[in-house]
Design a binder for these strands. Structure first.
Lengths: 151, 151
DNA sequence: CCTATTTAGTACGAAATCGAACTATAATAT
DNA sequence: ATATTATAGTTCGATTTCGTACTAAATAGG
C-alpha cells in the first residue's frame, strides 16, 4: 500500500465518519428537543459509559474541547440538576462532576426514545455489518487517542 | 436480533463514530490553522467531491445545517476568494456557489499536509480493515440520508 | 392575468464555542 | 521555608451556530 493510497483511504473514511456523525447527531438532537445540545448529552453519557467523579479538566481533555467550553456545558447541566459539581477533596483547585439520579433517568429516557428511530430503520440497516465495523472504529479511536496524548 | 440488541449496537456504533469524528476533526483543525474552520473546509471539500454550482440552500440541506449557518460559512469562504457566488440564471431568488482555483489549491494543499499525520500513524492503522469498514459507513450514511428526506 | 402560497436568501438577536488573560491552589526547586 | 513554575477553573470578548422575522422571486389556483 502506497502512502497516497493510505491517505486516500483515510480521507474517505474520515469523510464518511463525519457525514454519518452529522446525520446521527441530527437524529439525536430531534429527540433531545430544545432543552439540551448533543454536546451536553454526550457529557452525561460519558459520565455513565466511562465513570463520573472526574474533574472538568479531565472531561475537557476526553472530549478534546477547551476547558471553557466544558465549563459552559457543565453549568447548563448543573442548572438543570442533571449533574452535581462538588469540591475535590484531593485538590483545592478543582472540582468533581457527579451525575444525579435525574441525570441517569434523563439519559435512559433519551436512549429509549431513540428505539423508535432504530426500529424504523431496522429493516434497512445491516446490524451484523455494523457490529463487525465496530472494532475497526474502536481501534482507530484508540490509535488517534494515543497519538494526541503524545504531546 | 432483538430490538434491544439492535439499539445497543447502533448506539455503540454512533458513539464511536462521534468520538472518531472529534479526534479526526481535531487533526484537521490543526492543519487548517486559525484561518478556517472544519465546517468551512468541509464545504470546500463537498464542492469538489460532489460538485459545485449548487445553491446555498442545497448545501445547507446536504450538511443538515440551517441556511443561516451556511450563509455565514459561504461569506467567509467568499471573503477569502476560495469560492464565488454568482446569481442563478434559472432562479432570481438564489445563487450558485463555484469553487475558485485558489479554493481548489487550498483544498489540495490541506489534504497533502495531512499526509504527514497519516504517515506517522501508518504503522499502527490497519488500512485494510479501514477499507473494509468503508462500505458499511457508506451504507449507513445512505440509509440515514434517505430517512431524513422522507419528511 | 392576479392573488395566495411557497421558497431562497438576508438581517438580527440569542446561545454555543473558543482563545487570551486572570485568580487560586498545587508542585517543584533551591 | 520560600520563590518559582505549573495547573484548574473562571471571566471576558470574539467567532460560530442557530431560530425568528423579513424581503424578493417563483409557483399554484382561480
Amino acid at each position: 500500500m502506497t502512502p497516497d493510497q493510505a491517505l486516500g483511504i483515510a480521507f474517505s473514511f474520515f469523510n464518511e465518519v463525519g457525514i454519518v456523525n452529522q446525520l446521527s447527531s441530527a437524529l439525536l438532537q430531534k429527540r433531545l428537543g430544545n432543552g439540551f445540545t448533543v454536546a451536553q448529552f454526550s457529557v452525561l453519557n460519558h459520565l455513565i459509559r466511562v465513570k463520573d467523579g472526574q474533574t472538568p479538566m479531565a472531561l475537557a481533555s476526553a472530549f478534546q474541547v477547551p476547558k471553557t467550553s466544558m465549563t459552559h456545558s457543565l453549568t447548563k447541566l448543573e442548572q438543570n440538576k442533571l449533574i452535581e459539581l462538588r469540591s475535590n477533596p484531593k485538590d483545592g483547585r478543582s472540582k468533581c462532576v457527579w451525575i444525579t439520579e435525574a441525570g441517569k433517568n434523563y439519559r435512559e429516557t433519551t436512549i429509549a426514545s431513540l428505539s423508535g428511530d432504530i426500529a424504523r430503520l431496522s429493516d434497512k440497516l445491516d446490524f451484523d455489518a455494523i457490529q463487525q465495523a465496530l472494532p475497526v472504529l474502536q481501534q482507530v479511536r484508540q490509535i488517534l487517542d494515543e497519538d494526541r496524548n503524545e504531546d
